[in-house]
Design a protein around this nucleic acid. Structure first.
Lengths: 227, 227
DNA sequence: CTGTGCATTTCTACAGTGTAGAAATGGCGG
DNA sequence: CCGCCATTTCTACACTGTAGAAATGCACAG
């Protein structure tokens, strides 16, 4: 019962290996939980192996490499996005989908940034893309522009979420406001005047405003259809 | 004159150390060049030490740690942004600043993503922020909304650039279009119809369209001033 | 000229990483 | 029972960031 004996026993137990159905989606789920606990810097295949209860290399057998595992984690995240009904006006459908992204980002702040690096490959979220395109069509976006607008929308939404996660979107600290107010008045009149209002900044409001701007931009299109 | 003698000489030269003014900005410039050559994954303090010609730890002496060095690299990047004159309409000022970001991103694709992670701390690009706020004021954005709109604008622009760098914004491959066209017609009518136009997608056009949407959104504001 | 302090650079060492390649395991069809 | 083979484990290697101690050489006091 000594600790060394226990260790030996554990090693013995692990030595008896062989196929045991290490399910891919369970690995990925555990990986997402782990990266949320320890951050991306602290996330390693070895720790994941400990958490899953197997050798690290058993995990990498199921993925091409660590990046392949990141891709799978990104896939798992977008799979969590809610479906969006088609019975609302197009503005509300876009709003709902955008807010869904933000909620996901706030819930999985360490996993979400993987979307930016790996969304391009493998993730094909066709139902949601179809929804976005229908909304854009309802908004009067001409077909030839629709792909560009759709991509711009996703890039913008994900970029906003990433900015918030990384702490770019937050109320200013008093010291920062002081720093701005110390700038020469002749060159920075507007910024100095606005500095105090940065103290009360709400990240959600930033997100909402960005959405409204985008939607208003679509409304202001030259040949849009009437609503 | 043998190579071994040269090597020995070099080692001797390196062993005789002491202060020699390792200028911070030179380290950072070299670091940016290096990361552009080898990518972020291949970038290490040791390689940078080789490149600079000093011990790796001599570099980390000037920065808190590797992340501190990344921050300095991000600072160096935003310092490369061009100033924007104030003699154009506000739309053109925003457009110019946005295009400047994109040009920077395309020129330094491996360094630019650092902005997303480290822009929040330390980088205070006050002249440009003043410019953006003046443009927003000219566009009729009320003071209380200006900080949110400004942050949303930056987050959107940087997000767009990041998306393009990471390959999200690119023409579709034929195989991808085929995959979409194989989807059930009943559920994906719009996406299927638009799929072929993804083949001709131009990343610059996506960027321009996103900008125009944002600007049109600002134009469409309730109480905007006349231009 | 001789210390001597000190910012700077170098050296050494350590704990940890991703993953290639070989070996072991154990369920399954013959 | 055997042998196959996907799967898992083990071992090893090159590499990472960086803590901590030692060395270095410049500036300046005496």
């Amino acid at each position: 019962m000594s600790s060394t004996a226990d260790a030996k026993l554990n090693i013995k137990a692990r030595v008896s290996s062989g196929p045991r159905g290490l399910a891919k989606h369970e690995i990925v789920d555990t990986a997402v939980r782990l990266i949320e606990e320890v951050g991306e810097a602290g996330f390693s295949v070895r720790k994941l192996g400990d958490r899953v209860g197997c050798d690290p290399m058993a995990i990498l057998y199921h993925f091409k490499n660590k990046d392949g595992m990141y891709r799978a984690m990104a896939d798992a995240l977008v799979a969590k996005l809610s479906p969006v009904g088609s019975d609302q006006p197009w503005q509300d459908r876009l709003r709902a989908h955008a807010r869904d992204h933000r909620a996901l980002a706030l819930r999985y702040p360490n996993t979400f940034p993987l979307l930016q690096r790996f969304l391009n490959t493998g993730v094909a979220d066709f139902p949601h893309i179809e929804m976005v395109h229908r909304a854009l069509a309802d908004a009067g976006v001409p077909d030839q522009e629709a792909p560009a607008v759709c991509l711009a929308w996703y890039a913008g939404v994900i970029g906003l979420c990433a900015a918030e996660i990384n702490g770019l979107v937050r109320p200013a600290r008093a010291s920062e406001v002081a720093e701005i107010e110390a700038l020469p008045a002749a060159e920075f009149p507007v910024l100095r005047k606005l500095a105090p209002s940065y103290l009360a900044l709400e990240s959600q409001a930033v997100f909402e405003i960005a959405n409204e701007l985008f939607i208003r931009g679509l409304c202001g299109q030259p040949g849009r259809s009437p609503d």
